[in-house]
């Protein structure tokens, strides 16, 4: 493979007898921002979990740069270069901000991003480095989650609902960071229920409806009504 890509082919995800994702395929290139939109329960989060190996049961092929990563455990997938900023942030609530950031496997190793880089991006985290993560505001917690994922030095960054529950100005600040991350050659997948903002930030999008891809392509290629129809079903 000449061009680095994250490829998902014919993936289905199950919870017990329930099929949350149905035969979904998508690709993300390096330095590209791709949105996955869809209503609550459309299977977006399940898809991201499956990519990083946290689905209960999943079928299909998931590959990075041509190499199959579908059968590796989550830590190995993360080390291979796919990082997830999970829904609900999943910080360690009783650990300090600095502990949360500095625990990643790559932190402190040569070549990768350093703690100081994260503090440069989010100066407020440096001020609060000794506070337990649970006392932070929602926006600050999301910064820790994003910083923690970046410290894993990923090639591909998956963001699950990073704007959920945050004030509009905070969301705008977070989204303003994305182009900078992209320009470092990192492929980004944004999963959002909020269509407008994520579509504006991305070059391509996939819309999910009841576990399947109902529409995909460039946001400019479709009118608002077409996207809305594939979002809600008709």
């Amino acid at each position: 493979m000449s061009e680095p890509r994250l490829t998902v082919e014919g993936v289905s995800v199950y919870y017990g007898p329930f099929r949350a994702v149905h035969d979904v395929s998508l690709t993300v290139g390096a330095g590209e921002i791709v949105s996955v939109i869809g209503a609550n329960g459309a299977g977006k989060s399940s898809l991201l979990k499956a990519i990083v190996g946290q689905a209960d049961r999943c079928e299909g092929r998931i590959a990075m740069n041509g190499a199959d990563i579908g059968r590796m455990g989550t830590p190995a997938i993360v080390r291979a270069g796919v990082a997830l900023v999970p829904e609900g942030r999943r910080l360690f609530p009783n650990l300090t901000v600095e502990e949360n950031l500095s625990l990643g496997w790559r932190v402190g190793r040569r070549g990768g991003p350093r703690l100081a880089d994260v503090y440069d991006i989010f100066p407020v985290l440096k001020e609060r480095r000794s506070s337990p993560a649970r006392v932070l505001s929602g926006g600050q917690q999301q910064m820790v989650a994003l910083g923690r994922a970046l410290l894993a030095d990923p090639r591909f960054l998956l963001c699950d609902e990073i704007s959920l529950g945050l004030a509009p100005t905070v969301i705008a600040d977070l989204y303003a960071l994305l182009p900078g991350i992209r320009d470092r050659g990192i492929g980004i997948v944004l999963v959002e229920q909020d269509i407008g903002r994520s579509l504006r930030a991305s070059t391509r999008f996939y819309c999910m409806l009841e576990g399947r891809i109902s529409l995909s392509g460039s946001p400019d290629a479709f009118d608002r009504e077409t996207i809305t129809r594939s979002y809600f079903g008709s």
Binding site: G16, A50, G53, A55, G60, R71, M72
Partner: peptide, 23 residues
């Protein structure tokens, strides 16, 4: 349980592949 939870029969005949065995 299957009937109530999903509103349909359990998917039968589909292979159960764990693509991500617990590490």
């Amino acid at each position: 349980f299957a009937a109530r939870f999903q509103g349909g029969p359990t998917p039968q005949g589909e292979r159960e592949i764990s693509a991500h065995p617990a590490e």
